[in-house]
């Protein structure tokens, strides 16, 4: 009987095993090899070039742009989305009724395709849009939103914040719901009410949610593709040029498959290291408030 269970276990797990072999393990090994070649995706011949791809990437202007753009996006996106999600969660949490309805409503932007939202953003920011006419006629400001190296990334960060804020709000909401009532009661006895209670009780108690949301938001910044691809193409002046755009351009526009793979490997090392640093920072903050 145990034998048949074991056989069935392997059988049922086999879709995963076959898939992982073809679509994970094999490409993984291939990638580690490709990164050290100069293959151009078409030519039958290519040779191994040692570390040349990595050295080239290190001095490449576009790779450096992708590196810094990611942190710029983070600086804009993470505070907006974390504060926004907390705000939405607090609203939902304090409603006596219709919590489900508003949770669903705030979550709806998550369903949007980046392509469709890029079309809306481009339309709303177009030269003769009501928004720009208002700015020109009433404030005397003529703003080229998507041609500015500061505003263009900000617009993309806002687009992404719109998409993810309702999703992250649900994480904060479940955090808020898991704070025991006794803690609030105890805090009240110590005179912590209103803002004081929020600042000294609610926020520290929400540490696990802050941790999860921040790490998710940080990780997300290393995988941006659709929004800049459709809206700005990485410009102006590389200000919205992300890692994924760089890898896509190198491998599939310029056909440098080897070099593109090397950039992808650098990207994952940078991602991994950055997330590790953020985790350490957050854990330190958590330890200060008694979280292990």
């Amino acid at each position: 009987m145990n034998k048949t269970t074991a056989r069935l276990g392997w059988l049922l797990a086999s879709p995963y095993l076959i898939y992982s072999f073809i679509f994970f393990l094999f490409p993984l090994i291939w990638a580690l090899y490709l990164a050290f070649t100069n293959w151009n995706l078409i030519a039958p011949d290519y040779e191994t070039v040692g570390l040349q791809n990595f050295i080239e990437a290190f001095f490449s202007q576009s790779v450096r742009a992708a590196f810094w753009t990611t942190y710029k996006f983070m600086l804009m996106f993470v505070p907006i989305v974390v504060a926004g999600a907390l705000f939405l969660a607090l609203i939902i949490h304090s409603l006596p009724r219709l919590k489900g309805l508003f949770s669903v409503g705030y979550f709806l932007p998550y369903l949007a395709s980046g392509v469709a939202s890029a079309i809306v953003v481009k339309g709303v920011l177009s030269y003769n849009s009501p928004l720009n006419i208002f700015f020109r006629n009433h404030l005397g400001m003529d703003i080229n939103w998507l041609d500015s190296p500061i505003l263009a990334p900000l617009m993309i960060a806002l687009m992404m914040a719109w998409k993810f804020v309702g999703y992250y709000a649900l994480l904060f909401l479940s955090g808020l719901e898991s704070i025991p009532k006794e803690i609030y009661e105890a805090a009240e006895m110590d005179g912590a009410v209103g803002w004081k209670r929020f600042w000294y009780v609610t926020i520290p108690m929400l540490y696990p949610s802050f941790y999860t949301v921040t790490i998710l938001a940080v990780g997300l910044m290393f995988g941006i593709f659709t929004e800049p691809y459709v809206l700005t193409g990485g410009g102006p002046d590389y200000s919205t040029h992300t890692w994924q755009l760089e890898i896509y351009n190198q491998a599939f526009e310029k056909l440098n498959a080897g070099y593109g793979t090397a950039v992808a490997i650098i990207n994952s090392i940078v991602t991994f290291a950055s997330i590790l640093v953020f985790r350490k920072i957050l854990e330190k903050w958590g330890a200060k408030h008694g979280w292990e």
């Binding site: 679509f23 490409p27 990638a31 490709l34 290393f222 890898i247 990207n267 994952s268």
Partner: peptide
Amino acid sequence: PAIILLIPLFL
């Protein structure tokens, strides 16, 4: 990170 696999998967 799945991005490493993108190019070999395509191949």
